[in-house]
Design a protein around this nucleic acid. Structure first.
Length: 147
RNA sequence: AACGCGGAUGGGUUUGUCGCUGUUUUUACGAACAGAGGAAAGUCCGGGCAUCGCAGAGUACCAUGCUUCCUAACGGGAAGGCAUUUUGACGGAGGACAAAAUGACAGAAAGUGCCACAGAAAACUACCGCCACAAUUCGUUGUGGUAAGGGUGAAAACGGGAGGUAAGAGCUCACGGAUGCAGUAGGCAACUACUGUAUCGGGUAAACCUCAUGGGAUGAAAAGCCAAAUAAACCGAGGUUCGAGGGUGACUCGCCCAAGCUCGGAGGGUAGGCCGAUAGAGGUAAAUGGCGACAUUUGCCCCAGAUAAAUGACAAACAUCCACUUGUUGGAUACAGAACCCGGCUUAUAAAUUCGCGUUACAA
């Protein structure tokens, strides 16, 4: 599944504020990744409507940000966002499989922090590494919760 | 021909794999079709649309400023007038003609202010000079007159000539120039030409100001609809007292109004969703009218609609240009991304094409 539909985007202002307030962050080269792991769904709630919503919910939701402060022109920002989104789309499968194993949802807030422009050949390997680091963190935190 | 400067046109094409947004279709998987710009930008003007207010008057504030026309409207555009500059051709020169570019292009004769440096003085001006008178130690000194001459400056009291005078001065005269007013002729008008008459007042209004004309505020995060949560905050009618306070988004005058109470109504509204919101002052072709901006008629076309915000990524081929080590070579392909919608303005823009100007070289 290499799709990337709207369900996988982080749109809600409230959730974004929660992610920013959570302050769990991974720094890696040109990126700053903030994330919030939602607790795994254990019991099926009695409310039928909310249950359906949770089933349809995507495992990972992401918001990609390129600050206006670093890139003044809208064309540059759009181009970078597209490249980053494409890299994420092609490599997110590992992450989603992992999340499905652990039965938890995650919200991601990815910020590009470099002043220089970059192309696909530069971005893609960085995203791969970043996702591997994220998976390690998820393992660590879920173990802590179990203990 | 090359280079430079300034304008106009222009804004690469195709295939494959994996995706994104919308519409249509399908039970579903999926499929088909469409998917950034000339500036989408700056947010500088003008509208549409919507809400609030609507009781007005005056002042203030802001904008505009040759004329006529175009337009939904404009501070935009078209045509014209005038001024300045440049170029060309005519001429001994004055001059006047043509073309192009530029112009916040109403008023400086209502008032106030300002005019660097230099200069005596930047607007009730006398430094040198010239002239008269007085004094004199005969070197000059003082008082007054004088804008013809010198010097300064971007600019020095209309120009140079004659008369005149103590010396001079539009003081007078002829010629010429400028400005106001009146008339005649042409033009819709700005204005132009001529005649008469009065005057000779330096510049600056992108200094205050004066005059004329126009201007309600807000802005899609507006407004409307549905509606978990939450709260009793809401609306309509009646009605008493007070005139404190509030509203009429600057001020003054003027005008209007509350709460408690009674009766009636069942809504209000956050997250979220829908709508606004994409068929329009729309494109395009032809004909007709007009110098033109543009208008009218007819035919054809439907051409993004996202919302933490789609329109992409990768691979390859071609096209155009540049470089050299000339080949299965290496580079380059601008400015820039819709956010309610239109009309403008301004700014950015590679290659290529094209127009104008300048420089250089060659030929005749």
């Amino acid at each position: 599944m290499l799709k990337f539909s709207k369900k996988e985007r982080l749109c809600s202002k409230i959730v974004i504020e929660e992610v920013l307030a959570n302050k769990k962050t991974i720094y890696y080269q040109p990126f700053k990744l903030m994330y919030l792991i939602h607790k795994p769904v254990e019991s099926i709630s009695t409310d039928f409507n909310s249950n359906i919503e949770q089933v349809e919910e995507a495992w990972a939701k992401i918001a990609i940000v390129v600050p206006k402060r670093l890139f003044k022109r809208a064309v540059d920002r759009n181009a970078l966002k597209r490249i980053i989104r494409e890299s994420y789309r092609l490599n997110k499968e590992i992450l989603i499989e992992h999340l499905a194993q652990h039965n938890c949802h995650i919200s991601l807030f990815l910020i590009y922090t470099d002043k220089n422009k970059a192309d696909f050949q530069f971005i893609e390997p960085k995203i791969k590494v970043l996702l591997q680091q994220l998976i390690k963190r998820i393992n660590f935190e879920s173990n802590q919760n179990n203990n």
